[in-house]
Nucleic acid binder design. Structure first.
Lengths: 233, 233
DNA sequence: ACCTGAACACCGTTCAAGT
DNA sequence: ACCTGAACACCGTTCAAGT
């Protein structure tokens, strides 16, 4: 029934109204309130269904499993992460990267999640993720204040960076207007570096935030820095 | 006239409707469309006014100045940044930190900016910021792909991290409901680390994302990592 | 237990008419 | 040049009434 996700996947979350959803389901608006307290609860359920689908990597110890009982250790994400999985059990660092990238990708696949995520209460799908991240950090030898900082650094990076990237995903019409405005307002004499920057993207044929490795790049910076602070003073 | 910002500062952006704004100004709704094409343009102007207020630090070279002609080099932000400003002219690193922290604080002071920023076209207030950041990175010896990565890493961090932090700023009622839900759903047997984590925050008497140094912490990780990649292979 | 019609208090925006 | 009344096509939600 909560397959109102399709509707949001199509027209974005702004096109998801209780009225449109009811139409789609063949009911009248008010029937929905028999299954859901209000729109906030609907969004809550939708977000949690998406985020609940993140799968954990096997670290060789007690793994918190998915609702479906699946604890994946070989899929597209894993293939990109570093080695170390030759042993069968991944180390904490690989597992955190897997977790973050998997969540990042799920949000990119359902862009409306990014904006709704923040305004809605967490449910089990999100608590799971939080607990697992804390577990992996602990496994990595992080405790106390540094674990706390690391936890926030990573979660805020996953949510925030992804959300910002999605902001760069324009519809064709917006893309066209953006292009027009840029060439009208941003001239080489006033903004030489900005012009250069955009030219660079044109040559590379990339849209800012669409380059697949940017999320990983910053994630790596964060993890490196955390490790250094763990090992030094 | 664009002092509809007050309205958004008070009740959040959801309480800012064309109708309420007109009421506040003593006009009828439709009069607004004589001064602004539509609501999007209004939000565009509001965001740009806020972000246009970010002041740049003097790096001793050609400084792009504020609209007001102010090129601040000693205020609250500067006091927190590292030394190096004894010379009068700040180095690129200090200046980037200043820039990022200043923008971060402005957004925190007008939380609605975070959510609107992404959905609205940039104007001169934002182009300035982009150009200045690129200038500082160039000053720091970054070129090509690394400068590009650094630029995106920093801008997405400023916007995204801040936005996520704001998501943690609950109203008292939401705070109370969050508290109740947490203690109902997150039990020590299933989520031991999460319980521990929240207990840590309670002892520290901090709300996640309210600790003032978290933004700087991750920013430092990013800048450190960028420097290392600039100096090494 | 689930559905519905009518109603309430809202939105953004257009358009023709006023001064 | 600026303001406005009426209207259009929408919102989320409540409540009493139906089966």
């Amino acid at each position: 029934m909560s397959t109102a996700i399709d509707l949001a996947d199509r027209g974005g979350v702004d096109d998801l109204s209780m009225r449109r959803l009811a139409d789609e389901l063949g009911f009248k608006v008010m029937s929905l309130y028999n299954h859901v307290a209000n729109k906030d609860e609907l969004l809550e359920l939708m977000v949690d269904r998406i985020l609940g689908a993140v799968e954990f990597v096997d670290t060789g110890e007690g793994v918190i499993e998915d609702d479906d009982g699946a604890a994946a250790n070989d899929d597209a994400v894993d293939a990109e992460t570093d080695s170390a999985s030759e042993t069968g059990a991944a180390d904490w660092r690989t597992a955190i990267i897997h977790l973050a990238v998997a969540e990042h990708r799920l949000i990119l696949a359902h862009p409306w999640v990014a904006s709704v995520m923040n305004t809605v209460f967490p449910r089990t799908g999100r608590w799971r993720l939080a607990e697992e991240l804390l577990r992996l950090l602990t496994l990595g030898g992080f405790t106390g204040h540094l674990r706390d900082l690391g936890y926030h650094a990573i979660t805020l990076h996953v949510g925030g960076f992804t959300q910002q990237q999605i902001g760069y995903q324009f519809t064709p019409e917006r893309e066209a207007e953006m292009y027009a405005r840029f060439h009208r307002d941003v001239t080489e004499d006033v903004y030489p570096l900005m012009v250069d920057h955009v030219r660079y993207h044109e040559v590379m044929d990339t849209i800012p935030g669409e380059r697949p490795d940017e999320f990983r790049f910053v994630l790596d910076l964060i993890l490196e820095g955390l490790e250094r602070r763990r090992d030094d003073p």
